[in-house]
C-alpha cells in the first residue's frame, strides 16, 4: 500500500500529492486535494458528474488513476471562475435555470467548457452530441443545451 508521489498542474497551480495506485483521479481530487466540486455519481463512466479536462481532453476522472496524472495538466470546475467573474458557462447556467439539484452541474459545465475550447460556435446537435455522456435527472437537458449555446454567444460577443 505504498503511496506514489505525483506532480501535476491543477487549475494552473503546480500541485504535488501522494496517492495509492488504486485511487482514481476523482478520489485524489476529492479526498486528497479537497477539490470536491467534481462529483461521484456512478463511478463507472456513465454519468459524467466527475468530468475534468486532462491535457485538453474531456475525461471521466473516475476512469483515470491518480498516478496517471503525473506531469499532466488538469482543469476542474473549481478553476473556471476568477475571483471577480463567473465563466460565461456558469453565468448562463444560472440565467437559463439549467440546474436544479446541481450534482451533475460541475460535470456538464466542464464538459461544455471542453466543447467550447475546441469549437467556440457549436450547433445545437453538436452540443447535444457532445453532452451525451453527461446525465441529468432534474432539468431534462433542454435548458442545459440552451445555456451552452448562449454561453457560446456570450464568449463570441466578449460578454
Amino acid at each position: 500500500m505504498s503511496r506514489v508521489h505525483v506532480q501535476a498542474r491543477i487549475n494552473g497551480e503546480e500541485t504535488e500529492f501522494l496517492c495509492e495506485p488504486r485511487q482514481s483521479l476523482l478520489e485524489v481530487l476529492r479526498d486528497v486535494l479537497m477539490l470536491t466540486g467534481s462529483k461521484e455519481g456512478c463511478n463507472n463512466g456513465n454519468c459524467g458528474a466527475c468530468n475534468v479536462i486532462l491535457d485538453g481532453r474531456l475525461v471521466n476522472s473516475c476512469l483515470v488513476l491518480g498516478v496517471e496524472a503525473q506531469g499532466k495538466d488538469i482543469q476542474t470546475i473549481e478553476g473556471l471562475a476568477t475571483p471577480d467573474r463567473l465563466h460565461p458557462l456558469q453565468q448562463q447556467f444560472l440565467e437559463h435555470a439549467a440546474l436544479q439539484c446541481g450534482i451533475c452541474t460541475p460535470g456538464f459545465i466542464v464538459a461544455a467548457k471542453a466543447l467550447l475550447d475546441k469549437n467556440p460556435h457549436p450547433t445545437e446537435p453538436q452540443v447535444r452530441h457532445w453532452l451525451a455522456g453527461n446525465l441529468c435527472r432534474c432539468t431534462g437537458y433542454d435548458k442545459i443545451v440552451r445555456a451552452v449555446l448562449s454561453a457560446a454567444d456570450a464568449v463570441r460577443d466578449g460578454r
Binding site: 463512466g45 474531456l58 471521466n60 483515470v64
Partner: peptide
Amino acid sequence: VGGIQIQGR
C-alpha cells in the same frame, strides 16, 4: 464508442 469522455481515453 461511449461518449466524448470515453473517446478521450
